[in-house]
Design a protein around this nucleic acid. Structure first.
Lengths: 168, 168
DNA sequence: CGAGATATTGACTAGGCTCAATTGAAGTGG
DNA sequence: CCACTTCAATTGAGCCTAGTCAATATCTCG
């Protein structure tokens, strides 16, 4: 798991995405300008660099593939936007956990039980809420029997109600 | 001015972007799947359609141009994300107005005085706040002598302080 | 085991939402 | 031209969610 973040000129950071295996990082650098975001690994990772010229070659060979990739990122961003601008703390957490769950699923790992690689701080930063609110919302979800959570270990107990909570 | 919005399955709408002359609409359709967003014109507009195959041709001719275009949208989305997740009502409005101002500027129109083509409702929806909060925040900015606003007519009186307010 | 980081929980406060009333603008038809 | 309707915008009062400040609790790692 790798987190990507942008840094404001006041030095404040905003966690934009958490990326996993097979994700492409640093697409924001394709503007030709500088990268607007940085990234740090949250655990030991191996990664593969792709030069701009290599990207160009790939683009020539199958432009639609690359377009759709970028467009997907665009759509993903819009979804995140929707959640951030309209949902309350619990709904955000629910959406966040379900997003992670789905990404574990497509990678053949358990969508039901998994470890959070990131701190509460990072989660809160990413979802636009304080670390305390993250804790409280998680506790609330636990008390409602929607999830079990013990530090960074998550077990999803009720996918349906969790999904209903997100309102999407 | 055209607004693009996504519709949740509960029928609720979220205004994702406001687009102007020379903007490309519907890039989300490049996933190859369906478009995730719809668009409505807020005033009389003329527009030019580009087919997927035409996009492919353009992509072959100058892939980097198209990449950078999509990447720019990506970065733009991330900035919006940052504002939505971290700023309060006044800062969001300030950022919104300055964004519009800048876009008028590059199009040779007055960056200082302009008309809002969209309703308070749309603004609130886009910025993730209620219509009442939009009004109150605008009134507050007016009382602070940062802007003049009369219905949809906006005059920016103090760019510096407005920019400072956004905290970016 | 101890130190420092991370997480949880509580009490209080504040910014934004809800509900409600009023004003202003833009038509519409007689 | 004016009464009437309709919708957008503004403003106020009260409430509620999430932020702030503060105190513990638990984990991690040397």
């Amino acid at each position: 798991m790798v987190k990507s973040y942008m840094t404001g000129m006041n030095g404040d950071e905003h966690v934009v995405t958490f990326d996993m295996q097979c994700n492409l990082l640093g697409l924001d650098g394709l503007t030709g300008e500088v990268h607007t975001s940085s990234a740090v690994a949250l655990e030991t990772v191996s990664l593969c660099g792709i030069s701009i010229s290599r990207m160009e070659t790939l683009g020539n060979r199958s432009p639609l593939w690359l377009f759709s990739l970028l467009a997907s990122e665009l759509v993903r961003g819009h979804s995140t936007l929707l959640i951030l601008s309209r949902k309350d703390a619990q709904a955000r957490l629910a959406a966040f956990l379900l997003d992670l769950s789905g990404r574990f699923r497509v990678r053949g790992q358990s969508p039901q039980e998994f470890n959070l690689s990131m701190s509460r701080q990072d989660i809160g930063n990413h979802l636009g809420m304080t670390i305390e609110t993250v804790c409280r919302a998680l506790s609330c979800l636990r008390k409602s029997r929607l999830i079990d959570i013990d530090y960074r270990r998550v077990l999803i107990r009720d996918f349906d109600r969790l999904h209903a909570l997100t309102g999407t």
